[in-house]
Amino acid sequence: MSGLWILFRRELGQTWGRGGGPVLALTFFACVATLLPLAVGASPARLASVAPGAAWLALALASLLSLERLFERDFEDGTLDLLALGPAPLEAVALAKGLAQWLANGAPLALLAPVVAVALGAGLSLVPMIFTSALIGGLGLSFTGGIGAALSLGSRRGGVLIAVIVLPLFAPPVIFGAGVIDAYASGLDWRPALSFLSAYSLAALALGPLAMAAACRNALS
């Protein structure tokens, strides 16, 4: 257990510390949000109607950014080989990596998401709901994305490949995440959407590490 804790702290430090860490993803998120009014027009009514959805779309795109480094660096310098030989199963390693990815990338993005949505014209009353849905959804995005990152290990052109593999799989969290906010904003019952989103994230948390570990073993073989 303590070994996994150390691994988790290491992953957290690496995701947080090197190569810009979450700052890069946050800046990307802000950039996408900035381009939106430039593309669809600055009319407040139009922006406000798409703000929560646009925030979720930008969130999904921003969570792709750091996926490439999730396994690739450890794969290239041989750390992944050592981790595979170590006492902890690769599934636990994948779990630690996914959780660290969520805390170091998903959580800062979830903090920024309400800011972006409000800047685009969403009501202030939506802020807690946007944060909650982005935080819960971020867990699902991290673990689903991690599968793509592990699968593309050892391939040519990793980054684009991860996006192509993973983005179709992001459909459910985006639908439920934006659905929570949409339902809440229009006074409907938002709990079903939030339950579905949580269910998706928990399923990704449970099954994602299995697929990631299988993909890592395959890449190392």
Binding site: I147, L151, S152, G154, S155, I165, P168, L169, A171, P172, I175, F176, G179, F196, Y200, A203, L207, A211, A214, A215, N218, A219, S221
Partner: peptide
Amino acid sequence: TRAARASGILALVGLINLPIIKFSVDWW
């Protein structure tokens, strides 16, 4: 062989995910 295994894992991930996607899109 590695490509076949990696894409096989992806196909199984899709086998679980495609019904979820179908459900979520219907719900949407």
